[in-house]
Structure formats: structure tokens, C-alpha cells
Nucleic acid binder design. Sequence first.
DNA 1: AATGTTATCGCAAACATTCGCAATAACTGT
DNA 2: ACAGTTATTGCGAATGTTTGCGATAACATT
Lengths: 147, 147
Amino acid sequence: MTSYEQLLQELRGQGHRLTPQRLIILRVVADGARHMGVDEVFQRAQAEYPYMDLATVYRTLRLFKQIGLVTEVAIGDRLHYELTDPGQKHHHMVCRVCFGAFNLSPHYLEEFNQTLIGEFGFAPDLDHFTIGGVCVNCRSEGSEPST
Amino acid sequence: MTSYEQLLQELRGQGHRLTPQRLIILRVVADGARHMGVDEVFQRAQAEYPYMDLATVYRTLRLFKQIGLVTEVAIGDRLHYELTDPGQKHHHMVCRVCFGAFNLSPHYLEEFNQTLIGEFGFAPDLDHFTIGGVCVNCRSEGSEPST
DNA sequence: AATGTTATCGCAAACATTCGCAATAACTGT
DNA sequence: ACAGTTATTGCGAATGTTTGCGATAACATT
């Protein structure tokens, strides 16, 4: 059994059906080196299976996210998806200049989490967290002397 | 000069024009007690000025946000707007159950900010920050014994 | 007050995403 | 292997938001 199919077995455990469309979409996301936009997923999936529908891609990605198979990352004003890192859960720092996504260990949010619960009784959703900003490379390039 | 007009003078300082539509939209947002959705702003504005266009509301709110006149808060999957608290900048905790928005002092993000810069050289955008979760009221109601 | 410049408006069309529904096909139990 | 149940699909339409464009009106200059 390939690892894709292994992952998809998890679906069946939860009463979902293992369809060819889902298999294709998961493979596309898994093969992509980086996080992919919906449209990119759609185009590659359609190349493999011409009847693939855009609505199916949206629905499937939403399902995969619920299950935890993929992680949703907000890049600019669009959502992107990547295979959930199985060993190591992490959040993302997304650079608004180069659109790169950098991993952030949950450890760095632990104190923030404790503070909100302790001070306000507010339990933040920290299943996955994306913070925008400017990464170290783009910061140095932007402020470089013009020599 | 009313305070609305005062605020709108800031627009002119930046080369923007002070149109009746903008005045109306700002008044609507300012009069609303809480954060308002785009559609709510549109309906109230249209009541005052029947030719008001939805696209104008979107454009104007985006402009006001850029200028800093209003603050954008993500409630559920929709954006809401409120007059920027002039004295006291703050972030928001948004409850996913009751959709209430609670203010959060920037102070609580200061350490997080320092950590990201120090550890990764990543400068997070913390102009305005929204974190979703479940508020103290909804948490206690959800887990209350059924007595 | 009249004139020129151009930001802004209203409208319609484009775009991204979701929803409703009838037909299909994945799974279940036999 | 077959038949029944129902989750899922593909399609088209609905929704929420943005964009292109010609007409208008806000502002600056005279």
C-alpha cells in the first residue's frame, strides 16, 4: 500500500468514501514541493482526470483539512494547502514580500496561549496559526545600502 | 466642524477627495455600536442615499482601513469594520461561537513580537491582529452540567 | 464664478468560492 | 456477485467581492 493510500484509509475510518478524485487530489498536493493554491491543484488534477470539477477540489481540500491530512495556509488573500507534516505539527510565518512560508514550532505560541486563557478565559484556536510579516531575507534586501 | 468631518479632513491631507458617499459611510460606521459587516453598512448607507453602490462601500471601507480610520476585524469568514479606537490601539479576540469581539491590548503580543524578530528575524505584521477561539462565556455554557 | 484635471462614482461584468440537486458510484450486507 | 443505501460527484446557479470603464463631480487655479 502506498503512503497516499495509507493516508486515505484514515478517511474510511471516519465514514468517508475513498474516491478516485480524492486520491488524485491528495497525490497532487503530496507531489507539490510547496504549498499550492486551489487553482494550481485543480489544473494538475484536471490534467490527470479531465472531468475533475473545481467544486470537487474545494470540497475535497476542505475535507482533507478537517481530517487533518492537509494544512491550510493563508498566502496573500488566497488559501494554500500542503500535506500536513505528519511527525511535527507546526504553524507558519508567511512573508508578504516573497510569499515564502516558514515553519514555527507550537512552542512559541505556548505562552501566548496560556496568557489568553489565564487572563481572559479565552481559548484561542491554535490548531494551525498563520502570521504574516516580512522574512529576514526580504527585510535585509529592502534596507540594503545601495552600494 | 463635527468630528466626522474632522476625520475626513485627514483624507484630504492625503490627496483623497471628500465625497458625500464617504461622509455617509463614515457616519454609518461611527454610529454603529459594534463592528459592522459590509452589507449592514451598505443597507444603512443606502437608506440615506439611495444611489449608494455596493462597490463604493467596499472601496471606501478599504480606503478607510488603509488610512487607519476604521479597523478591519475578521468575524467568521466575513470582514467587519469599526471606527478605529483613536486613543487606544487594540487587537481582537473573536469568539467562534457567539461571534463576539473582545479587545486585546498590544501588550500581550509584545513578547511574541520580540521572539519572532529575535529568533527568526521575521517581523510580524501586528498593526492589527485577530485571533479566533471560544470566549469565557461560551466555554462555560458549553461544558455546564445539565442541572 | 468659470475652467481644467483627475479621483471617484455607478454600473455591469469578472472573479473566487459555495450551494442545490439529480445522477452516479462507493461501500455494506447478503 | 448482487442489490440497497447514501456519500459524493459534476453541473449550473447563487453568493460575496473586485475590477474596468465611461460619466460625474471634487478640488485647484485663474
